[in-house]
Nucleic acid binder design. Structure first.
Lengths: 119, 119
DNA sequence: TCTTGACCTGGAGCCCACTCCAGGTGAAAT
DNA sequence: ATTTCACCTGGAGTGGGCTCCAGGTCAAGA
């Protein structure tokens, strides 16, 4: 059972310690275990969940939606169909983002070419 | 010389009128012409520039950077090499965004598959 | 002519997602 | 033993990018 100090989790996940505390405060992270001195000791599971959070956050999912997902996860296995639905919906949004970015990028390329031609 | 009312520009560009006013206030839009009553009348050029702004904004360029680009445009043709540099740098960031999203999307797909398997 | 509606200004307010701070405790290294 | 350092809490503050509001002016259709 590996256990991580806050500093290790910061290193591992790229979230700042303030962000980790914030995520715990709002319930995106379930109450993290404490040692005798009251300092956080993250479990392997916590770190794994933070990997998921990182993925969702970096693909633009709002915290409110991540919170809904977190609640589904906590509610147990019977919510797996709902989790799939939520992730599929998110996947569509990510796909749309990618396509949108690609289209905008073509516009940027056109603009750059234009600038090159008028030089 | 076509001229657009605020409502037409909202329709055309998808920016809200408040956003248009805000962009003018901060200098992302050059002072827009007014009619006798003081109401904005946007030129074809303004609308074209807003198309560029839309593209840059939707690809995540911060307003501060758009402002630098706007200043280059205003400064005249001798800034074209600098504009190319700025757009190329932005293009790299857009490319990185796309690649990052694609990688995260693969993670999401993995997760969905996993959930499907445990069902 | 009247009314409705588009538009104006300056400035305050809002939302999101953190980020920072003060004041304090415990642990670890010298 | 002492110093340094990681960490704690509650709560205030920040930054980006709008968005809304009050109070007012013109304009265009019925």
């Amino acid at each position: 059972m590996s256990v991580y100090t806050p500093a290790e989790v910061v290193e591992e996940t790229g979230f700042s310690i303030d962000t980790l505390r914030y995520y715990e405060k709002i319930g995106l992270l379930e109450r993290i275990d404490r040692n005798a001195a009251g300092q956080r000791r993250f479990s392997q599971e916590d770190v794994g969940w933070l990997g998921m959070v990182r993925c969702l956050r970096d693909t633009g999912m709002p915290i409110a939606t991540m919170l809904r997902f977190a609640e589904l996860v906590r509610a147990g296995d019977h919510t797996i169909p709902d989790r799939i639905k939520l992730l599929e919906e998110h996947d569509r949004q990510v796909q749309a983002q990618i396509e949108n970015l690609a289209a905008r990028q073509r516009y940027i390329h056109t603009k750059i070419s234009y600038y090159r031609r008028v030089l």
